[in-house]
């Protein structure tokens, strides 16, 4: 037991305001490298021996393990590396085998999926080679690349968003913003 001097205040809080909620206090203007990929952005490799280089279809082997890529604003040379939600995984697929819904978003078979798992947000960096599935290292969600990254295993609740692509003078550019929400959705 205790002698409390603050009991009245607490009684008052309990009576009406007794729910603590974290209120984000920081706010800032979004720097351009945090903005999501924009139509017309170039796509460049993110890591590996070609890091920073513009992506052309011939630099990707057919059905190769997806590699990380980022968008780059050609006007300002801004690499959009300010948010991990901007990162995509890119590979080249056989256009004749792509599902009807997926086809319009690929350019010469090159397709880009959000790198961020829809389960709890890990980077989907693994690859099940014999089944052509992207795999999340965190809790083994599997995504079917020929079918719009539909979930074929694990706890992810929805497919990875696609970043639609097109070709401009033989190089891959962003055709439109992500097809869906990127990353996981906070519950409750």
């Amino acid at each position: 037991m205790t002698n409390r001097t603050t009991l009245d205040r607490r009684a008052l809080l309990k009576a009406g305001l007794g729910v603590g909620i974290a209120i984000p206090t920081k706010s800032w203007a979004q720097p351009p490298n945090r903005a999501r990929p924009q139509p017309g952005d170039w796509l460049v490799f993110d890591g590996g021996e070609n890091s920073g280089q513009r992506i052309t279809p011939d630099l990707l082997a057919l059905e190769q393990r997806p590699v990380a890529a980022l968008a780059k604003d050609p006007a300002t040379s801004t690499l959009r590396d300010g948010s991990r939600l901007n990162r995509v995984m890119i590979t080249r697929l056989d256009p004749t085998k792509l599902s009807e819904a997926t086809k319009p978003h690929a350019a010469a078979g090159v397709i880009a999926f959000s790198a961020v798992c829809t389960h709890t947000g890990c980077d989907v960096i693994n690859w099940v080679e014999d089944k052509l599935l992207m795999a999340c290292p965190c809790h083994e969600s599997h995504f079917d690349v020929y079918n719009g990254a539909n979930v074929v295993g694990g706890p992810a609740p929805r497919p990875l968003a696609i970043l639609p692509l097109s070709l401009e003078s033989g190089s891959v550019v962003v055709a439109a913003g992500f097809t869906g929400r990127v990353g996981f959705t906070q519950q409750f």
Binding site: V19, G20, I21, C122, C138, G183, Q186
Partner: peptide, 16 residues
Amino acid sequence: LLWRYVRYLPDDLQQF
């Protein structure tokens, strides 16, 4: 329930 604290987590968070 006496109270509930809810944290707004950043949307670029990853949770292994």
